[in-house]
Design a protein around this nucleic acid. Sequence first.
DNA 1: ACCTGAACACCGTTCAAGT
DNA 2: ACCTGAACACCGTTCAAGT
Lengths: 248, 248
Amino acid sequence: MSPKKAVSGPSIPGAVWLRPRPPRRGQHGLTRERIAAEVVSQLDQAGPAGLNLRSIAAALDVHPTTLYWHVSARDDLLDLAVDAVFAELPLPSQPSDDWLADVRAFMHNLRAALLTHPWSGALASSRPLLGPEALARSEFVYAALARAGFTGDELAASAAAVSNLVIGSVATETSWQNGDESSARQAVHEHLHANAETYPAMADLSTESGRWGTQFSYSADLLLAGLAQKAPSSASSPGTNSQTPRTT
Amino acid sequence: MSPKKAVSGPSIPGAVWLRPRPPRRGQHGLTRERIAAEVVSQLDQAGPAGLNLRSIAAALDVHPTTLYWHVSARDDLLDLAVDAVFAELPLPSQPSDDWLADVRAFMHNLRAALLTHPWSGALASSRPLLGPEALARSEFVYAALARAGFTGDELAASAAAVSNLVIGSVATETSWQNGDESSARQAVHEHLHANAETYPAMADLSTESGRWGTQFSYSADLLLAGLAQKAPSSASSPGTNSQTPRTT
DNA sequence: ACCTGAACACCGTTCAAGT
DNA sequence: ACCTGAACACCGTTCAAGT
């Protein structure tokens, strides 16, 4: 049984972070951090479907059921792992004077971190991100957008748009990579081409890979252009009217 | 064993659609459509975690393993279910003369359809959407954006941005609703407030629910503003903010 | 072509017991 | 406070056999 039986813990995913912290370290020196690190490493190797408590426990040299002292369910492990990925995201100690550049950099950094662990995009999109590392990054984005003049609901919506676009993009991208991407891409391309009358606009999509990066960049720039345009204090966004965000 | 053993079928999620169609109907009149409908209904009741082959088979009055004649794995069932949700999305038989309005309407309609089946957002964000119903909707968006003048990679990136933002938003929104949302919201609010020094910008976020809709709307408008601004043939987008001069 | 039936390997979680 | 050990209920998938 977990310690301090769920004082205020609602049963949503992400709820690990809302419960009181469990004891620091046991006889085996088992901590949430060590567990999280092992989960990340096994997810990297086997993906979410291949994750099981028994092998994690084995790697940590404890009995499988021991894990239940430190977390309350398998789902908690995924929350720990996702937050560990966010920890890899560089967090500028202080913001620059260009909020738009800060947001753009955040988007690209977030994508990079999530791509390093291909399972993380899908997980991040399907559970509240309430871990301390994730919250710290959110705070950074909120601060940048607040400098742009966004407040209240519009601030929240702007920040959500930024995260959702990035996380959604990475989730889509990595969902292709779970199998043999090039052959999948080829099969889809043939399928669209064979049904060119029903899908005229999509019929001649490029079959080349390696376009994920440029396409993401352009997607991000679309949103950034909208942010720059709608920012209440557009004076603080040097690039608004004169030059639209770069297309790298 | 599944029929026509995987001629070109790559092992990604979404691959059901890339394999040759299985036989039409068996002795029990079992079809992919009937299976899909049952999966949707059980997902509505129990969510993805509660889905199991045995109860689906029972509801369809067949032996559990019979399902393997019609699909090749549990994962295929999820693909069928997601495409069935897309089928609920109204698809205008012909586009209007306002591409921006068409895209905006699509975004709101897609959100509405996905919210009807709270499990669908997370699934849609984590697998390629290659079903016929999903492709037909993609085609509609591509066509609208093509009218705006987007081509090639920029067309693909624009369409991806639209879907990814909507699907990502819904996935986030529904991930809160898997448990007791109001108490979760409350707990997070308290947590942020208790750590107001570390999260100054997020500290006084509204704790009210019912803001999902307005926030989504604003998020969508941010992207739409970017699309309008960057559209090569912006003449065809009547609703753009006239104050933003295009540079290129 | 479509479905059955038995069987296998596995997995998350429980609970009482140890120290 | 932390961990063990046994046990339970369940679940996706296989394969050979039926019609």
